[in-house]
Amino acid sequence: MSADSNSATDEAPERLRIVLAKLGLDGHDRGLKVVARILRDAGMEVIFLGLRQTTSSIVAAVEQEDADAVGLSMHNAGHLTLGPKMVQALADAGLDVPVVIGGIVPAEDEPLLYQAGVAAVLGPGAPATEVVEAVRAAVAQRTA
């Protein structure tokens, strides 16, 4: 392929880079760590931020790491406030990066999260293949 100084730079990424984090004080990181390994084993690069992140620390990481997606794990019933807040913070920073939420999210809340712009919601016990597919689909949707 060729590229000159005026060509668009958004080729399809061969190796997805995913930022994984937990927002707020909740310390349940078992799921986040398992997902980190699932994505690594699917060939992705996981930028693991871990516990106690804020929307602004995640935005900074997404910018600097040029991440393709953000994965958040929620166990404290804060998803309805924090999920949309994350989507908004990324949009405000001019970042077109999809947000995938996993953890404990009751089915009845899923439509609300999708409405707020969350790209995918993974329920408790989602199998590895579903996790990987959801992330790939979320990224593909954006780059399409």
Binding site: R15, L39, D41, G43, E45, V46, F48, L49, G50, A60
Partner: peptide, 21 residues
């Protein structure tokens, strides 16, 4: 390092610098 098997990686350096970045 990347995983020699999948080519993926878990990059955890930011978290180790956390709170002080």
């Amino acid at each position: 390092p990347s995983s020699p098997i999948s080519g993926g990686a878990i990059l955890g350096d930011r978290i180790r610098m956390d709170d002080v970045i």
